[in-house]
Design a protein around this nucleic acid. Structure first.
Lengths: 158, 158
DNA sequence: TATTGTTATACTCTATAACTATA
DNA sequence: TATAGTTATAGAGTATAACAATA
């Protein structure tokens, strides 16, 4: 264990705390935390293809499909043929889905407030900035690290 | 959607990026990201009761038990009777488990390095501090927020 | 040829509740 | 009475791979 493990573990601990609190709050209105994210993404993007929805969440298209099927059964989401691309389907909130999203959003307010209140004013924007920086680094530098890893593997083989 | 949503979403995005990269790296040596956390917790704590292990991860005792059963089948973990408390069982890494942990730890090095390198020196400790603050707030102030929520519910009922 | 989505499939994590045994 | 762990059970998310239809 070196000191570098601290950051990943702290990130994990903070996210798990958020996730559990979210499950408890959103559960009161009958959705999971991840379903809330899907509903929120549709609420902002209106009508999206499944692929675009998966990209924004972010998640896997087949995962998103499984979630959409569940939400469609509950009448919260509607999937229609795409107007111009007949391979694609668009997903959108139904009226019930919009109401459910608003209920869930309200149920999550105490969590959002608490996260804000525990921090100094300037620290909020700073934390968002640092988290975004970490996320972008982990997502985009995949290729360069993969090269690094395979270089290491080659060296170990020789 | 208010501005308060930014922080939870940024936290989620950063964690998911970390988790996916971790799954990919740890997968190379045959463990999941969460199994790695369990192995790491045992590596630091040596011999722990299942309950203590669950508390440190943090996770649920029945979740931890399911994970231990899986890892025990693979010969990475050993569960023994507790020396003084005969209700309890202790969990510890086997020799193979220690080797596996070291392999996995090495496989995760590029991820840890990348997280560190993308940040300014001072920002690392700051980010850890802020994340810890958020996690503690979300974990410990559960009771006070629950009171607040029920107060709101009462007001809405009246 | 590449892309969108579906389907089948499998696995891990998660967690509640009822239960046994022990402290 | 409270605590440690087990068991049964259920559900959700995750993701790969093979496939059909369309761009």
């Amino acid at each position: 264990m070196d000191g570098n493990s601290e950051l990943p573990m702290a990130l994990r601990a903070a996210y798990l705390a958020l996730h559990r609190r979210s499950e408890a709050q959103f559960g009161k209105v009958g959705v999971t935390a991840d379903q809330f994210v899907l509903l929120a993404t549709l609420a902002r993007g209106d009508s999206l293809t499944q692929r675009e929805l998966a990209r924004r969440m972010p998640s896997d298209p087949s995962t998103v499909r499984a979630m959409l099927v569940l939400l469609e059964k509950q009448g919260l989401v509607r999937r229609d043929a795409h107007p111009s691309d007949s391979r694609a389907r668009t997903a959108a909130l139904t009226a019930a889905g919009k109401r459910k999203f608003e209920q869930a959003f309200a149920a999550g307010e105490s969590i959002r407030d608490q996260m804000i209140e525990t921090l100094q004013t300037g620290d909020i924007a700073l934390l968002v900035k640092l988290l975004t920086q970490v996320a972008e680094s982990l997502n985009s530098e995949f290729a360069s690290v993969a090269r690094f890893d395979s270089k290491v593997a080659e060296e170990e083989e020789s």
